[in-house]
Design a protein around this nucleic acid. Structure first.
Lengths: 116, 116
DNA sequence: TTCATATACCTCGCCTGTCAAGGTATATCA
DNA sequence: TGATATACCTTGACAGGCGAGGTATATGAA
């Protein structure tokens, strides 16, 4: 099942921060990873991705630097900042709250996904 | 915790359809219900609400009729259509898939909310 | 009577995130 | 020489959310 953009909207930032919390990475790689993890269901389009990087950098949640590897094309790496880690925690708590609420609203019960 | 608009974006329609699947209702009432269920964390703003009703009606997922009660202000009731029920099922499946995916992306594990 | 409040509906225009479409540049391999 | 993969970026259009503004009626208090 392919996932509608609107359902992902507002989740781009948290996904990127969560990924960068594990290790520094660059746009092209992150994009491929997400596609793979989601079995092709979800893709952050390039325009969206780079817009998000700019936004996060402007907020001070991430920093960037150019890779020095001798690769086909230069890579711009992103690093999460301490402030970004704090923000990520807030966003995760917020997301969990939201997911529970939506589930309650649409199912009238508590969410028990992952038990399948 | 108050919920950001972007996290709800794309969820307005499913929430309204799910509510109408239980019984006919009208905007003002639905809005109050949602506020209550979410403990004030989430509110579909009026402009958003009526825009959504128009959109859903245009898609043939809901129908409307004027209430005949003698109340302060007239009520416009909404009724879910068979097509709307079908669509709701699709949306719920889609939402569950999306929630699982996001959880996997941000936590690197399966979502087990509701077990707290 | 007059005014505030609650009920209940609606629209306009701005804001913001997504993304199609377009662009640049380099290394590799046929 | 050209195709393909890697890797970055920007512009403009689009769509949903929503602040601000509007309408109208019933009720109860001043």
């Amino acid at each position: 099942m392919s996932i509608r953009a609107d359902l992902l909207r507002g989740n781009t930032d948290i996904i990127l921060l969560a990924r960068l919390a594990k290790s520094d990475s660059y746009g092209y790689e992150i994009n491929k990873e997400i596609l793979e993890i989601s079995d092709g269901a979800f893709e952050i389009k390039e325009a969206t991705l780079y817009t998000a990087f700019r936004r996060l950098e402007k907020c001070g949640y991430i920093e960037s630097y150019w890779g020095t590897e001798h690769t086909a094309a230069r890579r711009r790496y992103y690093r999460i900042t301490p402030s970004g880690r704090d923000q990520l925690e807030v966003m995760i708590a917020e997301w969990e709250e939201t997911a529970k609420l939506i589930f309650r609203l649409i199912k009238g019960e508590t969410y028990h996904a992952g038990t399948d």
